[in-house]
Design a protein around this nucleic acid. Structure first.
Lengths: 259, 259
DNA sequence: CATCCTATGTGTGCCGCCGAACAGAACGGC
DNA sequence: GCCGTTCTGTTCGGCGGCACACATAGGATG
């Protein structure tokens, strides 16, 4: 396995061909990501892009009246701030560290230059952008049709796929902000999931007990996105396999075993 | 002005430098787009990409239970099927012609080859992808927080920005499908907008009378997306200006005068 | 150990949308 | 001009989530 501070803990970086990886490595800066830290603010320029390794970042879209919804969640399978590569001047969303950990960041213009060379890096990033788009669409559907229970299940599953262990360090209030519902609604939903035995909560903690039940309760909601992300990891693996030895395969097993 | 069958009616094509435009032109196929025609079906491969000229295409995301929401709307400012360029195997959404007209289509692999050359075409397409992403996020927020009135206003405005005239040829039922609400809810919302004098409806037609009122009723919902699309058009113009003579400026004026 | 603060559990009334059922109204073909 | 089809307007009960109010319970801190 890679050492805990290795850039290869991020799957995109791990999947890069040796040439671009070595070109990128000196440009990467290791940064701790404390929970709650805001990495992008609406209407401010994107200076760095972040490759999370052990942290999770949530993309929140906020209205003028302060109402808020999560539109995506990014862990070590992706990159935060990709819109900078697409020619966006400023961030339109707020991005917050949802679960503390580490990341590698890189100056936006440097990565953009590398991105415009084309090649595998571009491939990987575009493929990831597509998965992110699917995630957002799924959330749009979810916001219309699904109950709070279902959305809570989805959030837990997506988060725990990107973390070791089966416990999430988060309060009902914070979950409410992400889902765009009241704290009380989260409490009620959590209760329901608890009585069926899917999860267990303590003050500030949510632990998954029965993952199968949780997946059932999330419904196709989660299944669609999961499938898309598995395809994404397959792409990462095949790219890596075509270049150098592939440490990515191990990651993939890790990711899948954490189901 | 361009002749009615010119590929330059699509703003992306119009913004291309002469070199790539002439390279692309022989690959383009002029196709009529009758309302209701389905251009992509979930889980089927994307064979062609479509540059709408006078038509409008809606991106619909459908759940297993048949529930459905629009996640984006594409007119002559964009392209349909862009996920094929991002490495997606199949379409995940259904895309339907919302308003009849014409388009130019191109085989997916051909455009992909051109896309991977980098250059202005890539720039333009990525910039558009970003705008589309914003649109989807906005809809996600809308689906959580906004009333049917607001969403109807938004839909009308977005559609009419992409059409000449001030009238939309669509039934309440169809609007309901796009918004993911019942037909009756659309009727009620339309009534409200009608009593304030913002719109007027006839059987199968919705006409905007007072655009200002409609924008007020749509709220920031529309304003955010509109702003992003105006930025997008600015990019198109500046690209075109840097290459050859720019007929795009005229389009932009047309787009803005139709507000 | 007492205290405070934050997080969680519960109840009530309200509002918007849904589901279903039905009445009228406009168009389009014959 | 007639008739059937399609589109639109209206009703009523029900439910999920909201706003607000309050009660309790962990867990830190002194």
């Amino acid at each position: 396995m890679s050492p805990p501070h290795s850039a290869k803990l991020n799957r995109i970086l791990a999947a890069l061909p040796l040439a671009s990886y070595t070109r990128l490595l000196p440009l990467l800066e290791f940064v701790p990501m404390p929970a709650g830290h805001v990495i992008y603010e609406p209407d401010l320029p994107i200076r760095h892009l972040y490759f999370p390794t052990t942290s999770i970042v949530a993309r929140l879209y906020e209205t003028a009246s302060g109402a808020c919804t999560q539109t995506g969640i990014i862990g070590n399978e992706g990159i935060a701030g990709i819109s900078a590569l697409f020619g966006a001047e400023n961030s339109l969303a707020r991005m917050v560290v949802q679960s503390s950990g580490n990341a590698f960041r890189i100056k936006a213009d440097l990565l953009k230059r590398e991105f415009e060379l084309g090649g595998e890096l571009q491939h990987l990033l575009l493929r990831f952008a597509h998965a992110l788009m699917i995630q957002t669409e799924q959330i749009a559907v979810s916001n219309r049709y699904h109950t709070v229970d279902q959305q809570l299940s989805y959030l837990l599953l997506m988060s725990l796929d990107r973390l070791p262990g089966n416990e999430l360090h988060i309060t009902h209030e914070q979950v409410g902000i992400m889902l765009g519902v009241r704290r009380e609604s989260v409490t009620v939903a959590a209760q329901k999931l608890q009585t069926t035995g899917a999860i267990r909560c303590r003050r500030g903690h949510l632990a998954v007990v029965d993952r199968q039940q949780l997946e059932a309760s999330a419904g196709e909601n989660y299944a669609v996105v999961k499938k898309e992300y598995e395809r994404l990891l397959d792409v990462y693996c095949s790219v890596a396999a075509g270049s150098s030895e592939s440490p990515t395969k191990q990651f993939k097993r890790f990711f899948q075993s954490s189901r």
